[in-house]
Every structure is written in C-alpha cells, then in structure tokens.
C-alpha cells in the first residue's frame, strides 16, 4: 500500500499560525519589558497574536469536516483530558480570550495588568509546545514520536512571532524598529538554536529502530521534500537570516543598520524566517512515514 499523509497543508498552516500567534504575544511582552516606550510595536504584537490564532482555528474547524457539519460536537472537545488535543483546546481558549482582552485594553489606551500579560505569555508558550506534543504522541511516526519536536516547535514559534512583529515594524513603526536592539539580538539566536535542534531531530529519527524513521529523513533531505527543506527552510528560513542579522547587528555601522536599506534587509530576513517556519511545519506533517507500512512484519 502506498501511504497518503493523514493530515495535509491545512494542518501545517494551523500549526504555523498557532505558534506564530503565541510567539507574537511573547514578543509583545518582551518589548513591554525591555523597551516600554515602543508602544506601536507592542500593539503590533497584540494585534497579530489573536488574529493569526483565530485564522488558524477557523482553518482547523473547516478541516474537521464532521464537526464543521455538526458544530455542537465541538463542545465534546473538552471530554477527554487524556488527549493532547483537549489540552490544546484549553490553552487556545485561554490564550485567545486573554490576548483579546489585552488588545481591547490597548485600543482603549489602558495598561493591561502585568499578571494578565504573564498569563497570556505562558499560554502562548503552552500553545507552541502543544503543537509539537500533538504530533509527538503519535507512536506510529518516528519523525514525530520524540521529545525534540515540541522544543523545536517552541523555538520556531517564538522566532516566527518575533519575525512577524519586526517585519510589520519595518513598515508601521520604523523608528521603534531601530530602538529594539535587544529584541533583535535575542531573535538572532533563535535560528541558530533551531539549526541544532533540526539536526538532532533528523539524526535521532534516522536512527529509529523502524525503517520508517530512516525513510522519513531521506524523504526530507534527498527525496520529495529536499528542495523545500534545503532552499526554503535551511537557506531562506535559517542561514540567510542568521547571516543578514549577524551583518546588521555586529558588522554594519549604526548608520547602515538604521537606514531604510538596513531596515529592508532586516525585513527580508524576517520574511525568510516566516517562510521557513511554515515550511518546517509542512515538512514535519507531510514527510512523516508510519512504522506499519514499512515494518518488517509486512515487508
């Protein structure tokens, strides 16, 4: 039997958007802590966080066709607390409510209480980690069934969240974009960590006792997904952003870094991070092969 992936690109979009939203809220809290004067960037984070998560959830509900036709069944999602998906629903619900309250307070020019920011940040992290655990508990897929995936998804989520806020900042708040140096320096390290995590994930998956682990990795690095992996994820999503940001933050002079050209270069690297973040989810969802199709008991 040839294997057709169970989940498709809609789920990849959802995993990407959920992580992005969580990361964007973490970013807004980070900016409020380190650069409280950058009100516009904080607001950008406040807007992105609930909006992208809600878009992701709409995609998810449309993809769950049986529930889409019978929406009352979505209430049943809270019945099995042994399921990662049920926990995800709880995290997402609290996250969306908190981020919407924070957003409304922001528009009313009221300071949101610190504790609410912290609750939102913790929920954002929980959402990002849950997207990895969701796949991680599926024992039939060596590419998913390991403890690295939730960590990788968390780092990627925070990275894409920061990239989204910075990219929007280039256009709506160029002055503040130049101010948030500590955010940029923190953001620089995330793709570096991601490279290490992705390498570890691929090495360990390839060494899985099942042939499916090796085959999944080969599909990614030299099979059907190789171009997406090397060009869109590794080059555009990780290496180019690392090189460009390293240049901007430590090599280019202050004048270059804060010029419109410098901002556009940073913006391009942020766009690359976003593309890479989506391609990572797409690769992980699509390239995972199940142990039973190639398991020795059949072949």
């Amino acid at each position: 039997m040839t294997y057709e992936p169970i989940w498709g690109s809609i789920i990849a979009w959802y995993l990407f958007l959920a992580g992005l939203g969580g990361g964007a809220f973490v970013t807004s809290v980070f900016i409020r802590f380190r650069h409280p004067e950058c009100k516009k960037l904080i607001r950008v984070g406040h807007i992105i966080a609930p909006v992208v998560v809600i878009i992701g959830l709409c995609l998810l509900m449309a993809d769950a066709f049986a529930g889409f036709m019978h929406p009352l069944r979505f209430a049943l999602l809270l019945t099995n607390f042994g399921s990662v998906m049920t926990w995800g629903v709880v995290f997402l619900a609290v996250f969306v409510v908190v981020t919407l309250i924070v957003l409304i307070m922001d528009f009313m020019h009221k300071e949101s209480p610190k504790w609410l920011d912290i609750v939102g940040m913790v929920m954002g992290i929980c959402v990002a980690v849950y997207t990895g655990c969701l796949l991680g508990v599926c024992q039939g897929f060596p590419l998913w069934n390991n403890a690295l995936l939730p960590v990788l998804f968390l780092v990627s989520a925070v990275s894409t969240g920061m990239a989204a806020v910075l990219l929007a900042g280039v256009f709506v708040a160029p002055d503040e974009f130049n101010t948030v140096v500590s955010l940029k320096k923190f953001h620089f390290w995330l793709p570096v960590v991601e490279i290490a995590l992705v390498m570890a994930l691929l090495f360990i998956t390839a060494a899985n006792p099942s042939q499916a682990g090796w085959d999944s990795v080969m599909t990614i690095i030299c099979g059907n997904w190789a171009i997406a992996f090397w060009v869109l994820f590794i080059a555009l999503g990780l290496v180019i952003p690392i090189v460009l940001e390293y240049w901007m933050l430590w090599f280019a002079g202050h004048e270059m870094e804060t010029s419109r050209t410098g901002q556009m270069i940073s913006g391009f690297s942020d766009l690359g991070v976003l593309v890479g973040g989506f391609v990572l989810r797409l690769l992980i969802v699509s390239a995972a092969l199940p142990i039973t199709i190639v398991q020795p008991w059949i072949f």
Partner: peptide, 11 residues
Amino acid sequence: IGCLYCMSACP
C-alpha cells in the same frame, strides 16, 4: 468531529 487524530495515532 473528523479531526483525524485517531488515524494518526493508530499504528
């Protein structure tokens, strides 16, 4: 609801 999580989990 048709989330297909069971299909992913079934080895």
